[in-house]
Amino acid sequence: MNNFLTALVQKLVTFLNENHNFFELKESEKSKKLESLSVPVQFKQYLEKADANSFMLDLKVVVQFIQDSKNAVLKENSFFKALLKFITEDLARKIDHLDGNFYLLPKQERVEIVDKLINADSQLAETLKEILTNFTYQQIANEIQELGKRIANTPYILVQSPREIDNELKKDIRMALSKENPLSFPTFQINRKLIGGIRVFQDGKVKDHSWISRVLRFTSLTAN
C-alpha cells in the first residue's frame, strides 16, 4: 500500500506543480485540468472538492502514514476516504476477477493474469499489480478492512459460499452490500460445509441462508 500511495502522491504533486493555481480555479475548470491526470477517478473527485490548505493537511497525514502507518490518524480524512472508495469500488472489482486458484499458481502465471487484468503501464498501475501478485486475497482483504475501520469505521462483512461465486454475482453482492454500508469491503470466502446457499456475517450479526443451517433447523424441528 505504501508503494501505491507514494506513486499516487508523486503523480498528484507533479500535476499540482504543473498547475500552480489549480486550487484557485472553478470546479468546471478543475475538471478540465484533471482530464490530463491519469489517476483513478476517485482521486480526481477528491481534488475537485479539496482546497490548498486541506490538501496540504491531507498530504501530511499521507506522509505520516507512509512513515508510520500504525500511528497515523486517518479518521474521516478526505484523501484516505478517496483511497478507500477507489479500493472498494475499482480495485475490489479487479480482485473479484481472481478466482480461488489464482493464489496457488506460480508467480509467472499470476503476473501474466494480473497484467491482463490491469491493462496499464504507469507506476501507479505497477504498484497495484505488485499488490495483487505478491499478496494473498486474505492479506489484501484484511489490510483493506483494517483501513476501512480506521478511516470510516466500516463494518466487517464476510460472505461465505460453498463454492466459488461467479464474477457477475460477486459484483452484484458487492454493490448491494456497499449501498447499505458505504466504503465497506465485503470479503468472499469458500466454506464447503455450507453445502449450498450463502451465509453473510456483518459486524457480529449473521444472516444464514445456507443449506447446512436448514438441515440443522429441520432436524431440530422434526426431533421436537
Binding site: 463454492r163 446457499g197 453473510v200 441462508h209 445456507s210
Partner: peptide, 12 residues
C-alpha cells in the same frame, strides 16, 4: 449448488 448460491442471494 451454484443455483443455490444465486437463489440464497436473492432471498438475502
Amino acid at each position: 449448488i451454484q443455483e443455490s448460491i444465486h437463489s440464497a442471494w436473492k432471498q438475502y
